[in-house]
């Protein structure tokens, strides 16, 4: 069963076409990474999913409802994290907590919030605006976790976070989804953090069909090779991108067989992502 279904999604801002006929699904219990370089429409897609943007054509269904017109019940099942940890900065932590506790009364699990909050070593009476970016992110994420959503949509959760906070978040996220009944759609620019976390990835590229593939399959089948600089690439099928380093040439793609004279590169997720999208 899919919690998110995007069908034939197209969007343009005026004459500027962002993408056309985008299709993807997020199955229940899966963690899906929506990846892509800047400007390919990740945030646009997330805004459409969050009901803050009406697509030029096509539709997005979340729990079977149009994302632009979600019922109150469906909204309560979705946890949204906006890029930059947008929240009510002018409130104190305790007031923000009470707000979420009241709004999500039926589902709210305060222990999830306090568990994370205690680790920050800050007072409940502090204003959100006085917190550091990392502290603020954990307060926001803590409240989202505490509202116990069935679907988490996280827009660039890693923005402005140091390694420690990123790791803390990933640990909590892993705990949050361990029962396999929660679904997550997330975007980030630090893709290596997501290794071992993702079930599926969607990689968007400007003017091309997005790649919607299982994470494991991607990691297994997407490969990179180093070739001598003067190699003729015409006979090699499946190349997605080429990196020319002078005497050496690196090719990335879904290859059925290892090219002649090629030396396989060891790719982490970031390398593979860049290999697929192209570095520049």
């Amino acid at each position: 069963m899919n919690v998110i279904e995007c069908r034939n999604l197209s969007h343009s801002f005026g004459k500027n076409k962002i993408y056309e006929k985008l299709n993807f699904n997020v199955p229940r219990g899966k963690v899906v990474g929506l990846l892509g370089k800047n400007g390919v429409g990740k945030s646009t897609t997330i805004n459409i999913l969050m009901g803050n943007l009406e697509p030029t054509s096509g539709e997005c269904l979340i729990f079977g409802e149009n994302s632009n017109n979600l019922s109150a019940n469906t909204k309560s099942r979705i946890g949204l994290l906006y890029e930059g940890y947008v929240t009510y900065d002018y409130l104190k932590i305790k007031d923000l907590y009470k707000l979420y506790e009241k709004e999500y009364a039926a589902r709210f699990k305060k222990e999830l919030f306090f568990d994370l909050f205690k680790k920050l070593g800050i007072s409940e009476n502090q204003k959100i605006s006085t917190l550091s970016c990392g502290q603020r992110s954990q307060v926001v994420l803590g409240l989202i976790f505490a509202s116990d959503p069935d679907l988490l949509i996280l827009d660039d959760y890693s923005l402005g976070l140091d390694t420690g906070y990123r790791r803390l978040f990933i640990d909590y996220l892993k705990k949050f989804i361990e029962n396999k009944d929660k679904s997550v759609l997330m975007t980030t620019h630090i893709v290596n953090d997501l290794d071992e976390l993702l079930d599926e990835i969607i990689i968007m590229r400007k003017g091309k069909e997005p790649l919607n593939i299982g994470y494991k399959k991607f990691r297994d089948t997407f490969r990179g090779f180093s070739l001598p600089g003067n190699t003729n690439l015409e006979n090699i099928d499946g190349i997605e991108s080429i990196l020319n380093l002078g005497d050496e040439m690196q090719i990335f793609g879904f290859f059925k067989k290892k090219p002649i004279n090629a030396k396989e590169l060891k790719l982490n997720l970031e390398d593979a992502f860049l290999g697929y999208t192209g570095r520049y």
Binding site: N52, A72, N73, K75, V86, E103
Partner: peptide, 13 residues
Amino acid sequence: SGRLRLSLHFPHS
């Protein structure tokens, strides 16, 4: 910062 997006997402119409 587009906080209205948050306000609109509270579980009400």
